[in-house]
Design a protein around this nucleic acid. Structure first.
Length: 439
RNA sequence: GUGAAUGUAGCUCAGCUGGUUAGAGCGUCUGCCUGUGGAGCAGAAGGCCGGGGGUUCAAGUCCCCUCAUUCACCCCA
């Protein structure tokens, strides 16, 4: 292979797949819009400290997964490994917290230096939302409902919602103390990584997949017996609201998110169809983050969803929700170079009035042109050759019914618009509907 | 960062224990067919066998290194 290849863990979205990406992006815009969220776009890189101070030293992401480098002026720059911290940075920089509540969504690439595997890449893409300024359980419930709505909007069904509360500063501290005390007694039996974590980030041990660890954890104290009344009531209220919206949730006291900034509510949407990386969405409440980043104390809730993983599920579910429609409606077919010259301005006029049209500039043979036109999904062919040329007309052929009519070149635009409208009425209800609520 | 499997035509893959000029199916192109899509028939193009080094009279095949892919661990979306 003489050519360069895409760097490890990255990939090209080829034209055959790009339609699904576009459709998914439209669905995100549509669903977020319906929930009252507005888009925010932030740079793909930030000052390194934006992530270190929020995600937390001691997390894997900060310790070993960041793409960090010095720019030419010696500033430490990091390609964003997530988007919550950048969004908070932007919100503070531009004083967006002046009017609360603030509801934002985003989508775009993130970067993590990890070994690639199914559903995991070095450049991957996420979309997500952040809701600032609402301390009550309605905020948590709305964010979760939005995530669940998007998943079902793309036709995925085999997924579940798991929820937990990591407690507030007080009950979490108590729980951490009890957990550390329990684990310290059995430190010798813990796996090496868990033993190391005992000092740096003990809550993460709850996530361990090591069999020995799990056996020990089976009898470890769990967070739910340490929740203070406020935290317990908050989680209960969130789940009741979800219930009322018809969204079932399962309590999983093992959920510990990978970032330090979460407080109280944390949740994941998971699916078995994803292999080992079973989470498509994760999120939670971060009531201290804004303050910790230098802003006014402001509660917040958010979520992030992995686009590649979501697309994997769309495929696994054989959902057609993201299948795009044909690109062009009309194929221009010219037999001789002079016919091509005559058709170019006609095609341009069609395009300008909003009709998708394309011409095969290279293929000579009529049958080849008709064939590839039909395969491309075009509905009509406009054919000009010997007969039509002398008559100043074109043959307009319906590529499905094979019916042909002759039309004066001058009337072509109107005639085609008519036929397409007709076509729309009769055979429109195909499966290609993208975002149902887009209008 | 650790482990395992895999890299041969645009795609999916054969190529047995090393042995002439590297194979199939699909796809592409051409013709049969002065102006109509399917199917058929005939033909053609397309390969530094991922890259580098080594062993050998001889390497797609064996050994080492490297790059990449896939899956798993770790962790996460």
């Amino acid at each position: 292979m003489k050519h360069a290849a895409a760097p490890r863990g990255t990939f090209d979205v080829l034209p055959s797949q790009a339609g699904r990406w576009q459709a998914l992006e439209r669905t995100v815009d549509d669903v977020c819009g319906r929930f009252g969220y507005r888009e925010i776009r932030t740079p793909v890189f930030e000052s390194t400290e934006v992530f270190v101070r929020t995600i937390g030293a001691g997390t894997d992401i900060v310790d070993k997964e960041m793409y960090t480098f010095s720019d030419r002026a010696g500033r430490s720059i990091t390609l964003r490994p997530e988007l919550t911290a950048p969004v908070v940075r932007a919100v503070l920089e531009h004083n967006l917290l002046a009017e609360l509540p603030l509801k934002l969504y985003y989508r775009g690439p993130i970067f993590r230096y990890e070994r690639p595997q199914k559903g995991r890449y070095r450049q991957s893409h996420q979309w997500g939302v952040e809701l600032f300024g609402v301390a009550g359980p309605e905020a948590d419930a709305e964010v979760i409902a939005l995530g669940m709505e998007l998943v079902s909007a793309v036709g995925v069904t085999d997924h579940r919602l798991e929820i937990n509360s990591m407690g507030c500063e007080w009950c979490r501290t108590e729980f951490r103390g009890a957990l550390v005390a329990y684990l310290t007694n059995r430190a010798q039996e813990l796996s090496a990584t868990s033993r190391e974590r005992l000092e740096r980030n003990p809550l993460r041990i709850l996530d361990s997949k090591d069999e020995g660890d799990r056996a020990i954890l089976a009898h470890a104290p769990t967070i739910d017996s340490f929740w203070c009344e406020t935290c317990r009531a908050h989680l209960a209220a969130v789940r009741e609201l979800l219930d009322a919206m018809g969204i079932p949730s399962e309590l999983n006291t093992r959920i510990v998110r990978g970032f330090d900034y979460y407080t109280c509510t944390v949740f994941e949407i998971t699916s078995q169809a994803l292999g080992a990386q079973n989470a498509i969405c994760g999120g939670g409440r971060y009531d201290n983050l804004v303050k910790d980043m230098g802003g006014p104390p402001t509660p917040g809730v958010g979520l992030a969803m992995g686009i590649e993983r979501l697309l994997l599920l769309v495929e696994a579910a054989q959902s057609t929700k993201l299948d795009g429609a044909a690109r062009v409606d009309v194929a221009m077919v010219a037999l001789e170079p002079e016919d091509m010259r005559a058709l170019v301005p006609v095609m341009h006029a069609l395009r300008r009035r909003g009709i998708g049209a394309d011409m095969d500039y290279t293929r000579r043979k009529l049958e080849k042109q008709i064939k590839s036109a039909a395969e491309s999904g075009a509905r009509l062919a406009v054919i000009v050759g010997g007969d039509e040329r002398v008559a100043g007309e074109a043959t307009v052929q319906d590529l499905r019914t094979r019916e042909r009519i002759r039309v004066k070149l001058a009337d072509l635009g109107d005639a085609i618009a008519d036929v397409l409208r007709e076509n729309e009425r009769s055979g429109a209800k195909t499966d290609g509907s993208v975002a149902d609520g887009s209008q």
